[in-house]
Design a protein around this nucleic acid. Sequence first.
DNA 1: CGAGTATTTGAACAACGTCAATCCTGGTGG
DNA 2: CCACCAGGATTGACGTTGTTCAAATACTCG
Lengths: 233, 233
Amino acid sequence: MADFDNARICSDCAVRDRALCGSLDDSELRALNTLGRRRRLSRGDTLIWAGDESLICGNLLSGVMKLSVSTVDGREQTVGLLYPADFVGRPYAEQADFSVTALGDVELCIFPRKAFEQVLQDHARMERLLLQRTFAALDEARARMLALARLSAAEKVGGFLLDMADRSGGCRATAFGPVTFDLPLTRGEMAEALGLTTETVSRQLTRLKAKKAIALHGARGITIRDRDLVTGG
Amino acid sequence: MADFDNARICSDCAVRDRALCGSLDDSELRALNTLGRRRRLSRGDTLIWAGDESLICGNLLSGVMKLSVSTVDGREQTVGLLYPADFVGRPYAEQADFSVTALGDVELCIFPRKAFEQVLQDHARMERLLLQRTFAALDEARARMLALARLSAAEKVGGFLLDMADRSGGCRATAFGPVTFDLPLTRGEMAEALGLTTETVSRQLTRLKAKKAIALHGARGITIRDRDLVTGG
DNA sequence: CGAGTATTTGAACAACGTCAATCCTGGTGG
DNA sequence: CCACCAGGATTGACGTTGTTCAAATACTCG
């Protein structure tokens, strides 16, 4: 990517105020500017492979990515989803334990890991923000452990749909409730995130549709017709 | 607890070199000394309740604790285990999302959360160490998500036993293999950590005993007779 | 020794996974 | 613009794993 593109890398950043770097002032930002590189990936591309050397970190600018691991015999689990302004990567580790893969087309701002660690060292405010984000990610991961271990398939799928609806910025179809949006995941990807199979996710969606809790539009479109019915009430 | 006890609070600390405060020099330690208070809990006592205000953090000095959450209708899940020298608590949050409970008798070194945050602010080295620990905890939580969602009961129990054996400092019964130790958890607590029921854990242990992979001594004692058989090989 | 709790064991059941077939859909090329 | 194609989604039948409920047994600690 040409230097020209990076000259304005921060000033035209879509997540300038929400990402980690939002904590920096203009002069600090110039240092990052020289380090960061924009990178685009297409659906299915993997930025980081589990087991590889941890070489980069950065911020997700647009699109959705998944964090995943698998057992030696190929069973796979998504352990987190990443949204715009989320931090990506694993500072202070020689090796990445999780793969990071684009679920749709994505755009990132990438830094060399070592250089980024130096920036953290020089900017305590940013390091504190990263610590706070990491604690939040830990809370989320632990909450998801409860869901994976103890919720039924119906509860997992219902909860997931409501979560996605809330994140979608939900273009409300009407004034009183129905929220319509596109899932950024296939059935198989949802199953991988929820600890289920494609078939079970599909059956749960069919069940919710039959209950008139949701409506489906093609493979990706979803309308939440009745939140209470979605949670199983 | 009397001030006298705290005067030597750090110098006689059992985890002095392994805990977070190991990063501090003597003068820095004096500041912490005035903040920290020793606290003992008995088996079953809860230090922090999920949902309560986040008022304290600290280090676990001895014993084992569990981190847990439950659903509104009472299904419970252990989302982490804490061992000596581990950090306890949730800085930068107003509310604790997880309960912290003693699995046996434990001893802790406790700080008021706000004061501890100030120490972090003043000691960048310590804050960096906490960031590194938090990343490690996040990696562990995510690895456990894979286990909870995708491993069979046999794999969960087997893996757990080997993990505990390694942590136990395993007094080797003989020169070539058998490791004997006491589980710090009941069957029910193991089940809660593994996303199973007491009955399933018990049945898996019985199965491993029948395979001569392990031996059981009373309710808590375990001997690993053949690691490969424990993992299912 | 004995009470109370934890553990083990059994039998029946439910939830979810597996395997296989079919349907849909969104993109492509004629 | 429409027919076709490939991958994703749905549905069905059936098997398996782990849960549930219930009872018996074994520990542990007074």
